[in-house]
Simulated scan of single mutants.
Amino acid sequence: MSNVFSFATSEDGAGILKIMESDIARGEIRLLYTRRPNPYDSFMKESDKSVVGIFKRDGEIVGTIAGIPRNSHVAGDEHNTCYVTNMKRLHDLKSRINWIEAFEKMYDPLDSSVYFCSVVKENTDVLKMLKKERPKLPYAVDMDGYRTYIISPTALVRNTCADLKFRRATEADSADILAFLKTWGGAKSLFPVIDSLGGENVPEAKDFYILHRDGNIKALGALWDRSDTKQYVVEEYSGKVALLRAFNPLISRLGYVRIPPEGTQIKFAFLSFFLAEEYKCDYYRAFLHHIRSEISGAYDMFVLGTNDHNEKREVLDEVRSLKFDTQLCEVVMENFRGAKRVNFDYTNIEVECALL
């Protein structure tokens, strides 16, 4: 019997979760990224246009793929962009998955101009498969590297702008926050179009923090707890990280992440929509310096990510953290369905970690 494609429902959540949790990010730690308790429901919360596809064989789910469309800024215009994720097969599956059939069936309901995905860099077989060009079929090209940082609230970050003030936002700041996001996020490709705060896909105004001078915003970001839909679970440590675990109290005082036990879920918030005026590194550093005290007590650590060519990379690489790398790719569809390709600068993108 062949593998049969269908659109998933909430009842398929357990089978999707089984496949999702077979893939572990490798780096200084083996980190499991998951969407418990039900990945299907989690994907549906990401966008009102989300589409989840599955392949079944003899009634068992053997392959999964999800597309999450969002209205995003791309090269100065607004476009539907689709994040393609959870493109995975059952680990011991002997037969092939017809991914082209999945793209064919999902293409019209996803209705997007730009498709992109993120792949753990160690998954070289997956990257090789995605990048193979075939006539009239979709293929992937590298956009940029992406690094995810797990940072302790005790991390040492110097305040490079002592003259600036820092505070938690209120509802009264909503218009200024939205204007700042549009100006500095909107100048980057793949940053979502944000017209209002709150709901499933954007933090509320009270979740944002503002670095300002005389009321003028210089940097902002939100502490966004998304543990109800996506989680990181520590699977295993190796090398120097395993050694450091024995010195947890000491390394915490030195600014390193206090390493949680293996098999436990990390208690964290994303630092989301983190932007600075003119992308100034000093503003990013000053914001990070202040935000640490807001995290301490509520969370063990905070998580954020940035692509290799983003200005934040210089600042974040200075901070003691656990980190892992993935590869961002554009899935080129023009040879597949004749779609007109939207060209944009791969070095000028802003991809939000909490939306991956």
Results as ranks from 00 to 15, higher is better:
M1D: 12
S6E: 14
S6V: 06
A14M: 03
A14L: 05
G15Q: 12
G15T: 06
I19K: 11
E21N: 15
D23H: 14
D23P: 01
R30G: 00
T34D: 02
R36N: 00
D41L: 03
D41E: 06
E46I: 00
D48Q: 09
I54D: 03
F55Q: 12
K56E: 08
V62R: 10
G67T: 06
A75C: 12
E78Y: 06
H79C: 02
C82A: 11
V84M: 15
L90A: 13
D92V: 08
S95I: 09
I97S: 08
W99E: 12
K105L: 13
Y107S: 09
D108R: 02
L110I: 03
D111M: 05
S112N: 06
S112I: 08
V114E: 02
F116A: 03
V119Q: 10
V120P: 10
N123Q: 04
V126I: 11
V126M: 10
L127I: 13
L127G: 04
K128E: 11
P135Y: 09
A140W: 04
V141C: 09
V141N: 13
T154A: 06
T154S: 13
A155T: 06
A155D: 03
A155G: 08
R158G: 04
N159A: 00
A162P: 15
L164T: 09
F166C: 04
F166W: 08
A172H: 10
I177K: 04
I177G: 10
F180T: 01
L181M: 15
W184G: 00
W184T: 12
G198I: 05
E200G: 00
G215D: 06
G215H: 02
N216G: 00
S227W: 08
D228R: 13
T229V: 14
V234P: 07
E235Q: 14
Y237L: 02
Y237C: 02
S238E: 07
G239L: 07
R245F: 03
A246E: 03
A246T: 04
A246R: 14
P249I: 12
L250F: 14
I251S: 01
G255Y: 03
V257M: 10
I259E: 08
E262I: 05
Q265D: 10
I266Q: 11
F268M: 13
F270Y: 15
F270W: 12
L271M: 10
F274A: 05
L275I: 13
Y279G: 00
Y283C: 07
F287W: 04
L288K: 04
S296C: 07
A298G: 09
M301S: 15
V303F: 08
L304W: 03
H309I: 00
R313L: 08
R313F: 08
E314F: 05
E314K: 15
E318C: 14
V319Y: 07
V319S: 08
K323C: 07
D325S: 11
V332S: 07
N335C: 11
G338D: 01
K340T: 14
K340A: 13
R341E: 10
D345R: 09
I349S: 05
E350M: 08
E352A: 01
C353G: 00
A354Q: 01
